Simulated scan of single mutants.
Amino acid sequence: MSPTARDSRSDEDGSATGALERAAALLDAFDATHRELTLARLVERSGLPRSTVHRTAARMIELGWLDKPGEKYLIGNRLFKLSGLVPVRHELREAVLPYLQDLYAAARTTVQLGVLDGAQVLVVEKITGHRPMPMLSQVGGLIPAHCSGLGRAILAWSDEDTVEAVVAAGLTKRTPRTITNPEALRTELATVHERGWAYDHEEGNAGMSCVAAPIFDFTGNVTAALSVTGPSGAVVPDRIGPAVRMAAAAASRAYAARRWAVPRPQPGLPSQ
């Protein structure tokens, strides 16, 4: 390849990469509390120039990545359709959902399923029944790992590098009860590992408590956690903890069996 052709290809790749980064910046501007954004707010939250946002958003609408039925931009239906193919939703959620439903029937308060996403927990599924709790994150929302039952249930079985990454991100104080000392957090994680379930007593939200237990994949590695969350008076750890642990163990077996059942290409045979 000649230097001229190589330079030209580099320019094209840079342009494509830049377009993807701009699109990602616009998508990142949306979250559970910012589901609809005006052009001005999209500019503010993305940090991109107004003309760039307007041009990029128009192309994303054409692709179905965004929608704009009125004066505000929304996430497009095409992304919603694709989200169902993400393994964490298609495989993990489907395997665990029956156990979440059983746990909700027993606890009669909010149950959640989450996976670790950096120093936070991504809420994959949530069942609230007729008593929604708006102070809790919605499906697709993020909650701090260090002060949540879901996060601690995962971190207690994670490697040291994963725990260190959470500590390095900062142990932000959410309530007067939040553990913000790294050594205190490590001590708490050791207790969680020994007990088999995690307990967050009003550390993420005042007046709210959470009991969570880990879910393991077919390799024996922690992959997620499920929890019961509600008003502190209703979430009694010694009573709910064993039930949460049993539900998580059953969910782990179901998820492991599902993963083992996934067809794998045989040597010498074409993939389906």
Score class of each variant (00 low, 15 high):
Arg9Gln: 12
Ser10Asp: 14
Asp13Ile: 15
Gly14Leu: 11
Ser15Tyr: 12
Ser15His: 12
Thr17His: 10
Ala23Val: 05
Asp28Ala: 12
Arg45Glu: 03
Pro49Lys: 03
Asp67Glu: 13
Gly76Asn: 03
Asn77Phe: 15
Leu79Ser: 05
Lys81Cys: 10
Ser83Gly: 15
Leu85Glu: 09
Leu85Met: 09
Pro87Val: 12
Val88Asn: 07
Arg89Ala: 07
Glu91Ala: 11
Glu91Ser: 12
Glu94Leu: 02
Tyr99Ser: 08
Leu100Ile: 02
Gln101Arg: 10
Ala106Arg: 14
Val111Ser: 02
Gly114Pro: 07
Val115Pro: 01
Leu116Asn: 09
Val123Leu: 14
Lys126Met: 10
Thr128Glu: 15
Pro132Met: 08
Pro134Tyr: 01
Met135Leu: 14
Gly141Ile: 00
Leu142Asn: 12
Leu142Gln: 15
Leu142Ser: 11
Ile143Gln: 07
Pro144Lys: 04
Ser148Phe: 00
Leu150Tyr: 01
Val163His: 01
Val163Phe: 00
Glu164Asp: 06
Val166Glu: 01
Ala168Glu: 09
Ala169Trp: 05
Gly170Asp: 03
Thr172Glu: 15
Thr187Gln: 14
Val192Met: 07
Val192Leu: 01
Glu194Pro: 07
Arg195Trp: 05
Arg195Asp: 02
Gly196Ile: 07
Ala198Leu: 04
Ala198Phe: 02
Tyr199Arg: 08
His201Phe: 08
Gly204Ala: 03
Asn205Ser: 12
Ser209Gln: 11
Ala212Arg: 08
Phe216Tyr: 11
Val222Ser: 09
Ser227Lys: 00
Ser232Val: 00
Ser232Ala: 13
Val236Arg: 15
Pro242His: 01
Val244Trp: 05
Val244Ala: 06
Val244Ser: 06
Arg245Asn: 03
Ala247Trp: 13
Ala247Arg: 12
Ser252Ile: 06
Ala254Asp: 06
Tyr255Asn: 04
Arg258Ser: 15
Arg259Ser: 03
Arg264Pro: 02
Pro267Trp: 06
Gly268Ile: 13
